[in-house]
């Protein structure tokens, strides 16, 4: 049998097998809660449209963020420009 490394031993010192079981059960419970009940009249393809809307919203955030950062840089570079005398 292979000897456990020091790091493994460290892990086992803090977590008992019961802890591992409880964590696993918690993960499974969360995933179980995310599972969908059957909707007899739900359009099974509508989730793809909903996902597209969600990812478009995310794209919108990126778009706005990029624009703000761009404007900020523009303002900063303009601030550093030497002023011309008239």
């Amino acid at each position: 049998m292979e000897k456990s490394t020091g790091r493994d031993m460290h892990l086992y010192r803090f977590y008992s097998p019961l802890d591992f079981l409880l964590i696993t059960l918690q993960i499974l419970a969360v995933l179980g809660a995310l599972e969908q009940p059957a909707h007899a009249y739900a359009d099974p393809g509508s989730g793809l449209l909903a996902f597209q809307i969600l990812s478009t919203t995310f794209a919108g955030f990126i778009f706005i963020l990029r624009r703000r950062v761009h404007q900020l840089f523009k303002r900063m570079t303009e601030g550093f420009k030497p002023k011309h005398s008239v």
Partner: peptide, 9 residues
Amino acid sequence: PRLLERKAH
């Protein structure tokens, strides 16, 4: 998309 199906309903 599966998880969002309920929202889309």
